[in-house]
Computed example of a mutant assay.
Amino acid sequence: MSITGMSEQWVAARIKQKGDSKYIPWRSLKDAILTHLDVRKRLDVFALSIYGLVVFPKALGYVDEAVTNLFDRLDKKVTLIPVIFTETFRSLSACRRTGDGRFIECAQLLLAWFYSHFWKVDKVSYRVFFENYSPLKEIVATPRRDDISEEKWMVILQNLQEEDVEWRAPWLLPDEILYMCGNFNWVPLLGVCGAIGYAPLLVLRQYRSRQFIPATQGIANCEFSYKDDGYKKKIQKMSSAWKQTRRMRGLAVGPMITPKYNELWGKRINDNIPKIEETKQRKKQRAKRAEKEGKKERKKEKEKEKGKFKVLRFQAQLLMSCTSHCPRKERRKWTRSDSREIPVSKKNQCSIQHPK
């Protein structure tokens, strides 16, 4: 964490092991923000917290160690945009494969994409595109709606029609499109915890270009985690591919979709969309797990309270037994001390020998 001015000793003393990853608690970073002598470093630690808690969230209230390593590279003019894309696509891909789970990356940026491309929601036109339009500013100004249930969102998304989606992103200027790297027929992306392949040729409509069927055979094998076997060789291969990039100019001539692509899209079947009944059942299962974990936490708290009560009761009994013999100073020693630190042989007797 050189960019934040924190030493390795400071990090080692505060880093926590959670599962198979290491994290830094937000509490420690918050203390550094409030107490660091260098104002610039305070801002750096605050920025690191935003990246770890909002942009790349992995565990609630903790910043992944991998995020700190990435943050240290910012002073070398490294852009985080491909990394954000990578982790977003990996999380969405995992949810799609399993048909369940939660999107654990930056939900705010994904919501910005929804606002930018969904022309209608529930058949009500709610926004108009302008050249100077900023989706982030609109999201901040839009009141948050918590009254839309998960089931209702599923109905809205499953019933979206092609005319409900605005494919032409207005802020993308007609320019060159990066579509290949090295021998890959797509763009390999390296993230914080893994890698994935992305084919820009699948979204040519966003570049105001004609959409056709691109070559994507083998793109699924491009996705892997940094914990998989042989991941270092794959990283090296992807990094070398970025030295040879290929670009094309986006030009729209005639219809936006080729006949073959339109035919392929009509045959496409997405059998990985969960039904509403299945979603309700999964919500009940998650609620049961949360309730079970809550009971365990409450049980631990009760045991802690019982332990504290036993200590206080022992001190009270000891104080009462010595009331008639011990001076006040001696009694104060017993009340201030912790009975767990007193030797067992001396727990039931005072340091002063009373006359029998």
Rank of each mutant, 00 (worst) to 15 (best):
L70K: 00
S28E: 11
Y126M: 08
I213F: 04
F224E: 07
Q236W: 03
K292S: 13
W167I: 05
W242P: 00
T98I: 01
R14K: 14
E138I: 11
L251H: 11
L318I: 01
L34F: 12
F114P: 04
R42W: 07
P255C: 00
T245G: 02
P135H: 05
D271P: 10
V311W: 00
A290S: 03
W265K: 13
K232N: 00
I235T: 07
V55D: 00
W265C: 03
R42M: 08
Q17P: 07
R14E: 10
Q315V: 14
V11N: 03
K267M: 12
V121C: 07
N262D: 15
P135A: 02
I257E: 11
V253S: 03
Y207C: 07
S149Y: 03
A241E: 02
W26N: 09
V165L: 10
T98R: 08
I24H: 06
I15H: 01
E65L: 06
S49T: 15
N348R: 14
E263H: 14
K288S: 07
W167F: 14
I84Y: 02
K30R: 15
K284F: 08
S324D: 15
K267P: 04
A169T: 15
E341I: 10
N132D: 15
K280I: 06
A94R: 07
V155N: 13
V165P: 10
Q158E: 11
T216I: 13
Y51S: 00
G61S: 03
Y226W: 06
K288A: 10
L48R: 03
N185G: 13
F46R: 15
F89C: 04
T98V: 00
L48G: 06
S209L: 02
Q236C: 10
R97A: 06
G101L: 05
S209G: 08
E330A: 08
A141Y: 13
I269C: 02
K58A: 06
A316E: 12
K300E: 14
V45I: 15
M238A: 00
L29D: 01
S339N: 05
